[in-house]
Design a protein around this nucleic acid. Structure first.
Length: 156
DNA sequence: GCCAACGTTGGC
DNA sequence: GCCAACGTTGGC
């Protein structure tokens, strides 16, 4: 594993399923259940220490609610092998796993939610390519530039 | 390899 | 709860 500069990401979670408060409680959580290749590929590019914006989706006020940190290298998502899991993937084998994940560690909860609504208001500064505010984008794990990271957290 | 049908995401 | 947008599946 080679050292490199810190990278930044945004990860979505439905608070009913797993909220920032839940992460605070457990401290570290394996980010299992991602079954989208693009999102998986982003996780494969993660390294311990990378910054994560924790985002609540499908809820009353969708938006960024906290900061977390990548706490492991990518490794195969164990739920893909478990027939009893909702995330079971019969096409995945231990020899050739399809789905990887990383552990995510709680850093802090923001004093307030930064609503998607408000984030959209900064579209010019964030740039056209920011997947979070792209029309129709459903990507649940996406890269954030250092400049975007700084701007978004300055809104707190 | 095309594309219709289907399932899922996620804002509203 | 609705539905637009997107990704995946599978018949041909």
């Amino acid at each position: 594993m080679s050292r490199r500069t810190k990278h930044y990401w945004l990860m979505k979670s439905e608070p009913d399923a797993f909220s920032i408060d839940a992460l605070k409680k457990v401290g570290v959580e394996p980010w299992n259940g991602v079954r989208n290749y693009q999102a998986r590929n982003h996780m494969r590019n993660m390294q311990p220490g990378d910054g994560v914006l924790f985002y609540h989706s499908s809820c009353e006020v969708p938006g960024i609610v906290g900061v977390a940190e990548v706490a492991s290298d990518p490794y195969p998502d164990p739920t893909q092998f478990d027939p009893k899991s909702d995330y079971y993937d019969p096409k995945s084998t231990r020899e050739q796993p399809r789905w990887d994940l990383v552990d995510v560690k709680f850093v802090k909860k923001l004093k307030r939610t930064i609503p998607l609504d408000e984030i959209k208001g900064h579209a010019d500064e964030l740039g056209e390519g920011f997947a979070l505010i792209q029309r129709g984008s459903r990507l649940s794990v996406l890269p954030v530039t250092a400049a975007q990271w700084k701007l978004l957290l300055s809104l707190e």
